[in-house]
Structure formats: C-alpha cells, structure tokens
Amino acid sequence: MNTITATNFNFPGQKKVYKGKVREVYYLNDDLLVMVATDRLSAFDVVMPKGIPYKGQILNQIATKFMAQTQDLVPNWLIATPDPNVAVGHLCEPFKVEMVIRGYLSGHAAREYNLGKRKLCGIVLPEGMKENDRFPEPIITPATKAEMGDHDEDISREDILKRGIVIEKDYLVLEDYTRKLFQRGTEIAASRGLILVDTKYEFGKTKDGKIVLIDEIHTPDSSRYFYAEGYQERQDRGEAQKQLSKEFVRQWLIANNFQGLKGQTVPEMSDDYIETISERYIELYENIMGEPFVKADVSNIQERIKANVLAYLNR
C-alpha cells in the first residue's frame, strides 16, 4: 500500500518546516505556507504506526473544497491547491485555541456527560440527555493545548479571556465565524443526507491583521457526521448511530485497550483493517462532497508532490 507518512522537501525560499500529527507545513520566504496532508492517522493525540491509503488526499480535497464553499461567509488562508495532497496559502499567526462546536451530545462531550459532569467549558448541559441527542442549540466548547504535552484541554470562554489567550474583540469574531461556518456545514451536510454532529475550526491572523480560517474544515479528522436517515429511530431504540467520522477508529482502539494513556501500547492494525479505514474515508468523501472520489497516482507520491509544488512556485 503506497502511502505518504513523512516528507523531506527543500523548496525555494524555504525557511523552516513544522511537522504536525497529520500535516507537514513548509514556510517559504516570509509570507507563504505549503501544507502537505500526509496519510498519517492520529487518534487520542497519538500517531498510528501505519499510514492510511489516500487519507491525505481526501482530507486536503474536502478541506479546500469547503473553503471555497464558505469563503463568502468567512475569509480563509488558502491561495491554491497545486497537488491533491497540498494546499498553499498565506502565512498567519494562529490563535492558540481551537473553536469546537457541537450540535449533538457525542464523542468527548458524551464521555464527560456519562461520567456525571453537567458543565463543559463553562456551559451548563441539560439533564436527561442520551448519547447522540441533539442540543437545543449548538454549543461552543473551545480547546487549547495543555501546557505540558500535546493533549487538547477543555477551556471556557471566561478562562480564555482571563488568561489573555485571545482578546475579547477577536474572540467575539471567532465565535461569530464558528457559528456561521457550522450553519453552512450543517446545510450542506443535510443536502447530502448527513448530519454534521460536531467539528472544530482553527483561525489565524494575516500580516495585515485580518482574522481568517486556517488548517482544515469539515473533514472526517475534524468533524463527526451521522446519516440522517434513521437517526431518530436509532435514538428511540437506544442504538448506536450510523456515522462517518474518525470515531470508528477511536472505538476500535478503545475496544483494544488503547486510549493514549501512559503505559498503553497501540494495538497492531492489520493490512485488512487499514484497507477498511481507507474505504471509510473514501465513503465519507463521496457522501459529503456528493461526487465520486478520484484516486491520485500513488506510484511515487513524493516525486509527484515535489514536481507539482515546484511547477506552481515557478509560475
């Protein structure tokens, strides 16, 4: 299985490289970013040992297409997509907070709720909810990086402002943009027979001080989707929801005694299981984008990316 799990490019004007859990970001001159979406899979803030075929292409194409479909609402960092795995955009100073928005009691929120907690990021949650029930209104539950380590940490709006992580004027813009993007994403998902359950957005500031959407948007790594058909029936029967997201990987890891905790070992993923993950990612792409997924040539992914990016930069 040909996958791309690491890169080591040297582009003209390159100043530095940042290697995240999934993406590798090349800083060019003082104003350009070349972001490569690898096939790495991260869960519970741990990168799995094997890459997932076509995952990087899927993430990049969903994110860049959704940026095009939301740029009338919220400005974003994107300039071009010279390769299926690559996005080129403006250098921004990222805000040190992720804007998580939830329409339903799922995932992390459900796990906290089931522990008896009725407050999440300063927001009081209604009593009597079941996992995957819809909230009366979407709630914003921000996250920030813990001071020690890479784990995300829940944080309230009050603490963000009190700790000076984001000034109030900017934070109000982040909240406004988050709600607008989630509403648009919800409408697009509904038109495809899906429910956008929850997602996260990241924002940055350009050199001229404009707040823009950065990183990814509405991908299976940053979002959770349910199938709309049969949703209420499954809730009424107390059944698990049919969903399209990375949650199925998390559940498999939990079932195999791994949640990223100290002393735990990542379970072995067979090639057959890796293939099923790839197929699920392709399924999500085709459902949310409403079009067939066209597999890029993966005979030599590294050379393909290098050639396409250099051709773009030379233009």
Results as ranks from 00 to 15, higher is better:
G193S: 05
Y27I: 14
A228W: 11
E233Y: 04
N287F: 01
I254M: 12
M1S: 12
K207S: 14
A240G: 12
Y273D: 01
T5M: 07
K205G: 00
V22S: 04
Y225K: 09
V197R: 06
Q235K: 15
D159E: 15
Y26K: 09
D297Y: 14
S278I: 05
C121S: 15
Y104D: 02
Q232E: 15
L41W: 05
V298G: 09
G204A: 06
T144M: 14
T81F: 02
E127Q: 15
N8T: 03
L32Q: 13
M269A: 13
I195H: 07
R134D: 01
S156N: 05
I123Q: 12
L115T: 14
R224W: 07
D215A: 01
I123E: 13
Y285T: 01
K295C: 11
T206V: 03
V166G: 02
R304A: 13
F66P: 08
E137D: 12
P94L: 01
E187F: 05
E286W: 03
K130I: 09
I167E: 15
K207Y: 11
L125G: 02
Q243A: 10
T3Q: 05
H218E: 09
Y18T: 13
L78Y: 01
Y27H: 14
V86D: 01
K180W: 05
M129W: 02
K16I: 10
L105I: 02
K19D: 12
V88R: 05
F11H: 05
T70Y: 01
P75Q: 04
P12L: 03
E291H: 00
K246T: 07
V25E: 08
N132C: 10
Q14M: 13
K242S: 11
K246G: 05
F182K: 02
A240E: 13
L125A: 08
G116T: 06
R118H: 12
E131I: 11
A80L: 04
P75I: 01
G149K: 04
V197C: 14
A109I: 13
D30I: 04
E286F: 00
A255S: 15
G51D: 03
E216S: 03
N10D: 13
N314M: 13
Y104N: 00
P75H: 08
Q61Y: 08
I139C: 09
A240I: 10
E239A: 11
Q264Y: 08
I165K: 10
F226I: 02
R179N: 04
L115P: 07
I211A: 08
I62D: 08
